[in-house]
Every structure is written in structure tokens, then in C-alpha cells.
Computed example of a mutant assay.
Amino acid sequence: MSVLDNELFVKVQNAVFDYPVFPTLWIPHCIMMSLALRNTLGGNWRGFSRQHPMSCFILATLYTFPGGILATAMLAQPVLSFMLNTPFVLAMMGSWYLVFYSPNDLFFQLVTKTGLILPFSGAQDFLRLHLVLSGVQTIHQLHPGSFFYPVVFAICKSSGFMFLKYAEYILANGLNQAFVIPHHSTKTCILASVILTLQSLGHLPIDLKPLFAILVGISLSFRLLTVLSSWDPYQAFENVFCAIAFGRPIENASPSKKKNKKED
């Protein structure tokens, strides 16, 4: 009997595949995105949030729903349709308010001083893979034989924040920085988009549920390992690929010495 047929693994894969996004994955995501906005605003976050609360709220909305907004636009649907899901919007609003306006900044201190950032980041990675899966399934239903469309759509839906940050940088500084993929979680979403699309097309000899459970396990393991060390799980492959495909010497493709501790 293979590992995939093991009774315990079957229970785990079913639990992972059927795990509800709301509330235990979505609320940590909302909190992490409000924290990301606060980090972007820098030392002036308090003054900005008090003087311009509506602007702060709109930015928090864009930070929380970038993938959903981008995905609906790609499907030629109303970009504000995410607001139809009232519990999700209310969770975003509550998270934003607590991060920026809790008395004596108690909520921020609670999250940052008690180590909740790690489990919240893991929940966010789990959520992203659910978004990858739903993105692939959405396009597969509309265009069953397509490969590139579901891959690109799933990447945009799960990693819309990456595109938002690049657009944000362009608006502030102009086109003087290359587009980069700065974090392993986004790279995992790209890889998962390709793998799940291949599975949906019948090119992989594995069922969807065990495959998804394996991807979630890999993603959460990467999160834990990169918190404990500065190791980038994709760097070695990127170096070799760039050297072979683009002629860039491997020694010139060394990883950054500074660990990126912020979420992408």
C-alpha cells in the first residue's frame, strides 16, 4: 500500500482539501495585509490613518482584495463584486480598524509580540493555494483544453498583491526598477498553478486531493524553514536556469544577503 492510500493520509488530504477559507484563513490574511499597509506607510502611519481615514481604508481594501479585483477584471466582471461577500468584507474592515485604531496600539502589540505572525503567515500561504486551486478550476470549466490561461489566471488571483506593489512602486518612482518576484510564497503559487493545471488536463498520474495536500505541506514547510533561516528554496534552481537559459553566470546570481521578512 502506497503512502497516498494510507488511511491517515487520506483523512489529512480530505481535511486539507475541504478546509474552509473563512474564518481561520481569511481573517489572518486580512490582519497581515493591514500590517503590510502599515509597514508601507512607515513612521507616518499614525498621522496618515488619523488625517485620512477614508484613504487608509481604501488602501487596506486594495491590499486585502488585489487578487480578487484582478481576477474579476480578467473575467470581464464588475471589479467591486468582491463586496457581495459580506462576511469577508466585514472581516477586512474589523482587521483594518484593529491594526490602525486599537486603544494604545494593543492589537498590534499582541500580534507582533506574541509570535502570531508565523501562524498567520502560514494561514495566508494556505489561503493562496486555495485561490490557486479555485482559479485553475474556474478557467478549466470555461476553457477545458487551455494551459496558459488557467496558469496565468491562478497566479493573478493568488498573487495579486505582487502586481499591486509593482504598480505602487511605478506610481511613486517611475519605470526604473525591474519586475521581480521577491518572495518564496509567490513562487510556490506559480509552481502550484502549473502543477494543478497539468493535473486538471490529465497530464499527472495523481488525484487532485492528495496533490493539493502535498502542495500545502510543501508551502507550509517552506514558510517554517525560511523563518528559521535565510534559505531561499528556489534560489539554486533559479541560478542554474538563468545561467543556462540567459547566459548569466551562476556566481552573479547569488541570493540577496538580506532576508526579506515582509510578506509579498
Rank of each mutant, 00 (worst) to 15 (best):
H140W: 09
L127G: 02
S102V: 05
Y169L: 12
M54F: 14
N14C: 05
P255M: 06
P249N: 01
P28L: 03
N252M: 13
R223G: 15
S221H: 12
F120M: 09
I214H: 07
N173Q: 11
N176L: 08
T112R: 09
V21S: 04
Y63Q: 11
L133C: 04
Y101A: 02
N14S: 15
E7I: 05
F48W: 13
A71N: 01
K258L: 11
A213H: 06
E168Q: 14
S81K: 08
P20K: 08
A123K: 08
V99R: 04
S200T: 04
L133K: 07
G68V: 02
P28R: 02
V216R: 01
C189M: 06
L198T: 02
N173R: 13
V227C: 15
M92Q: 07
F161D: 10
C189G: 03
S185E: 11
V151G: 06
K262N: 11
L198V: 05
I195S: 03
Q137Y: 11
G94I: 13
S185H: 04
P119H: 11
T64P: 01
H29Y: 14
Q199E: 09
G68T: 01
G160K: 07
P249Y: 00
G217S: 04
M32W: 00
G217E: 09
I244T: 13
K113F: 09
T138A: 03
V89S: 14
L75W: 00
P20V: 10
Q199C: 03
G174L: 03
L8A: 12
L25Y: 05
N252P: 00
V16S: 11
D125M: 06
L228S: 03
I244L: 13
P66I: 15
F120E: 10
M74H: 03
L70K: 06
F82T: 00
P205Q: 08
P233T: 10
H140F: 15
N260Q: 10
Y234P: 14
V194E: 03
L90H: 11
A60K: 02
I155W: 12
S185K: 04
A154H: 09
V99Y: 10
S219K: 01
E263N: 05
G68Y: 10
T186Y: 14
I195G: 01
F108E: 10
Q137W: 06
D264F: 10
S159G: 08
S34V: 13
F107H: 05
F246N: 09
L224M: 06
C30F: 02
K261A: 15
T197H: 05
V79K: 15
V3P: 11
I190C: 05
G122M: 14
L41A: 01
A245P: 08
G160D: 12
N85F: 13
F9G: 02
T86K: 13
T186S: 09
Q109H: 14
R38M: 02
F147T: 00
N44K: 13
M92P: 00
Q199F: 09
F100H: 06
V10A: 08
T197M: 07
C56E: 03
S121L: 07
L75I: 00
S146K: 14
L106M: 15
L62I: 06
L84E: 11
I250H: 01
T61I: 07
G67W: 02
S254Y: 11
L131K: 12
S34N: 09
W45P: 00
S159P: 00
P20T: 05
P233I: 07
L131G: 14
N176S: 08
G43M: 00
Q177G: 06
L129G: 12
N85P: 05
G122N: 14
D232L: 00
L198D: 12
M33D: 13
S159V: 00
L164I: 07
N260D: 09
